[in-house]
Design a protein around this nucleic acid. Structure first.
Lengths: 175, 175
DNA sequence: GATTTATAAGTAAGTAATCACTTATTATTA
DNA sequence: TAATAATAAGTGATTACTTACTTATAAATC
C-alpha cells in the first residue's frame, strides 16, 4: 500500500466517523488526504469500496477486542472481561473512531449484525450457566444489551464516566 | 394547518425515519407528499424547519410516553412502567417512526439530550431508594442504559422479541 | 548496463445528476 | 379583491464518478 493510499484511508476514517458516511463527500476526503479526488476511485473503485476497505482494516481491531474474551476459560473472567470491553474504546483514537463509525453505520445503513455477536453470546451463556444463573440465555442477552447501551452513551458523550458504571457492574455481578 | 401541510409532515416523517434526515432530499419529500417542492419552503422555511416541525409534533408523543411514569406514586409501578415503556413503540406506525427518527438523529447530528432524561432518572432514583437498593442513582442509570439498548435493538431489528426481554426484566426486578 | 516496454500511481478538468432553495406566476379562498 | 396557497421553472453549488493525460516504478530486452 502506498503512502497516499494510507492517507486516504485515514482521512476517510476520521471523516466518516465524525460526519457520517453519506454526508462525507469524496472531494472532502481527497482534500483532507492531500490527494486528487480521482485517486480515491483509482484505488477503491467507488465510495462504497473505500468504506469496505476501512471496515476490513478494522476487523482486526474487532477480533482483538473480543478474541481475548472467547479464549478465556474461567467463567467469572469471561463476564469481567466482557463488561470491561468498552474501556478498550479508549485505547487509541483510531480504535475509538472505528467503533464510532460502526455504531453510526448501524443506524445509517440500518443493519443489525446479529451473527457477529453470536460467538460472544454463546460464551456468555455458558459462563452464566456455569455460575448457576437460572436463565443463562436471557442473562447473556441482557448483558449484551447493557454493553450496547453503555457504548452508545460513551461514544455520543465522551464525558460519560464509563469506568464508574463498569465498576458498578463488576460489583453487581460479584466478579 | 392545510391538508397539504399535513401531507408534507407525514411524508417527511416516513422518509426521515427510513432514509435519514440528511439523506432525504426535499424533492423526494415533495414527491411523496404529492406537492410541489416550493411549498415545503413556503410553509417550513427550510429543510431544518421541516424537521423541527416534525419533532415539535412528536413531543406530545414523548410526553405521553413518559408522563404516565412520572405521575405514578407506587415505586414498583414506576419501575414496571419504565421497563414496559418500549412496548409503546408498537402502538402506532407513526410512533414507531418518530422514535426511529429520534434514535437516528442522535447519531446523525450527534447529540445526547441528557436533560430530557433527567426527570425520569430522578423518578427512578427515588423508586430504587424507596425499595432499599444500595445505590439508587447507579441503578437508575443502569436501567436507562438497558432501556436504550433494548430500544436500539428493537428499532433496528423489528423481529426482536421485546416482550420476552421485558417479561424477564420484570421478573428479575421482582415486580 | 543502458534502453525500451509495460504497468501502476497520480492529476486536472471535466461529466450529468442532484442538492437546498428562490422567483415569478397562477389558483384558491376569505 | 386582498391575502394566502400552490405550482413550474428556474438558481448556483455540490454530488459521485469519468476521461484524458502525465509521472514514477519496475520488467524485459538489447
Amino acid at each position: 500500500m502506498t503512502e497516499k493510499q494510507i492517507n486516504i484511508l485515514q482521512a476517510a476514517l476520521e471523516l466518516f466517523a465524525e460526519e457520517g458516511f453519506k454526508s462525507t463527500s469524496t472531494s472532502k476526503v481527497a482534500q483532507k488526504a492531500g490527494v486528487s479526488e480521482g485517486l480515491i476511485f483509482r484505488h477503491f473503485t467507488n465510495k462504497e469500496g473505500l468504506l469496505e476497505a476501512i471496515l476490513k482494516e478494522g476487523e482486526a481491531k474487532a477480533k482483538e477486542l473480543f478474541g481475548d474474551i472467547l479464549a478465556e476459560s474461567d467463567p467469572k473472567e469471561v463476564l469481567r472481561k466482557t463488561i470491561e470491553v468498552g474501556l478498550k474504546l479508549k485505547s487509541s483514537p483510531d480504535t475509538y473512531r472505528f467503533w464510532k463509525l460502526q455504531f453510526k453505520l448501524k443506524w445509517e445503513l440500518e443493519y443489525y449484525a446479529e451473527h457477529k455477536m453470536q460467538d460472544l453470546r454463546e460464551k456468555l451463556t455458558d459462563a452464566f450457566q456455569y455460575l448457576r444463573y437460572k436463565n443463562p440465555e436471557m442473562e447473556a442477552n441482557l448483558l449484551l444489551v447493557i454493553l450496547d447501551g453503555m457504548a452508545t452513551r460513551f461514544l455520543l458523550q465522551q464525558s460519560y464516566d464509563l469506568q464508574f458504571m463498569i465498576d458498578y457492574l463488576i460489583q453487581k455481578y460479584g466478579l
